[in-house]
Design a protein around this nucleic acid. Structure first.
Lengths: 253, 253
DNA sequence: CGCCGGTTTGAGTCCATTCAAGAGGAGTGG
DNA sequence: CCACTCCTCTTGAATGGACTCAAACCGGCG
């Protein structure tokens, strides 16, 4: 059915665990159809029972959850090449939403196809599972971020994470990247209010750590921002270390 | 090597996905040795590369992470029968700590054995994976809890979760259970200070929602506590619904 | 040009923190 | 058996980081 639409997804999978060409071909032969969503549209809705899993081909997406008083918590950001809801291949009901952050293009893969390929190829199984374990590691890091760091530190941490992930994904250079989130999105990701996000960003900018443009961010002082954010990329488990000269000691504590 | 030490672990795995007896036998035949830890001892340490995965046989354990200023975030609580660090079977370096909350007994299973059994039995693979996806769902729920609810609500939510999980695991009746966490543990789990945890608990007690004993908690008004905590057990993905008469509408929004 | 979503700024308030001290309880050793 | 210690829990008072409310500003776009 599909030609090689899934090639970038495969590339990302292989960044942690190279696959033999039989597996590679099986993966690329997965049945899937592409689908587009406008910014803000729901890709997966809490409470639904999805029949497909989605991988991001273009654009950014985010997971979110609504709490009782109407507040929203953003649970994670997804970049092109990532599965946004593998858990729905195994679990019955979606326990949170997935939405397009920018206009996105996804590949929808039937759940049976996912389950099938994982049963028939232990290496692909392992590769996909590893990805989802890294997702979980990111959830934990965010939990620590929101639970135990102040606004300035939280913000710095998130900005560092996005830098490293975009760079590792080959999407942007590390120190100057596309940031499509509004301040409200940032607030919901960090457990803050939009107003306080605004003030926090201004301080970071005034301190010379970052500079902001329309939907872009530049890190002026990586070292300092990393320190403020208490950021260490270990939890991202990027096995193939990408250590640009422009980003000294990204792996340092 | 091992007789049927892993039986309770298997029972928990099967609570979501029953296994054919061949798989069951293979699982019970996994090589493992039991090991004891005193309360507070580290089972897994951040930065280490564990050679074994651990499953809890007796006692409670928790995952935690230390942030830059010395603060600690508790990332999750584990009850008997649960894997406490499956992610280390796939990822290189442990990105957080696992510690005994009470005196515990664990079974240590060599990582190769875990990987091996998952490669040879798709159903066991799926069962273990599902468990770890539920873990991830709990991380997300905690993130929303800490990020978007006030102290009273956070506390209520956690108390509800522990009630449902202990009941589902057959450890305690739902409405009156063992709570080995100190107020400091609770604080670190909820992103609060011990002092505020104390005040919050006292208010919940004064309002007649709970009553406390030495290391135990009784929920006096489940409905009210559930409402205060904005708690819905969906995210725990307990497929075999256990709906005791004593806990009306646990699944209701 | 006027609207609209997003950003910026100010002033006042509040939830949770910090600091500090005291009380309770379990275990230990004299 | 009692004193002593350590850990946990409790309480008060003052502080502060983030919030709320509200208004103004800005840039893009129809």
């Amino acid at each position: 059915m599909s030609s090689s639409i899934l090639a970038p997804v495969l590339a990302r999978l292989e960044s942690r665990l190279p696959l033999p060409s039989a597996d590679r071909q099986a993966f690329l032969a997965l049945p899937c159809r592409t689908q587009s969503f406008a910014a803000g549209q729901y890709i997966v809705r809490e409470g639904h029972r999805p029949s497909h899993c989605y991988v991001l081909l273009k654009g950014f997406a985010y997971r979110s959850q609504i709490v009782g008083d109407g507040g929203r918590q953003i649970l994670g950001i997804h970049l092109p090449g990532e599965f946004v809801d593998v858990q729905n291949a195994m679990l019955d009901v979606a326990d949170h939403n997935v939405q397009a952050l920018t206009p996105v293009e996804v590949a929808a893969i039937p759940i049976e196809a996912i389950v099938g390929i994982m049963a028939s190829s232990p290496r692909i199984d392992r590769a996909i599972w590893t990805q989802s374990l890294v997702d979980a590691a990111v959830f934990r890091e965010w939990l620590a971020n929101v639970g135990r760091r102040d606004a300035r530190s939280r913000m710095a941490h998130l900005l560092c994470e996005l830098a490293v992930r975009q760079e590792a994904g080959g999407i942007s250079p590390a120190l100057s990247y596309h940031l499509p989130m509004t301040q409200e999105h940032l607030a919901d990701a960090l457990g803050l209010t939009p107003v306080h996000v605004n003030r926090t960003l201004k301080v970071l900018e005034a301190d010379g750590l970052i500079s902001r443009a329309v939907r872009a961010l530049t890190i002026l002082d990586w070292r300092a921002l990393q320190k403020v954010g208490d950021f260490s990329p270990t939890y991202l488990h990027l096995e193939r270390r990408t250590e640009p000269a422009a980003m000294p000691n990204a792996a340092a504590a």
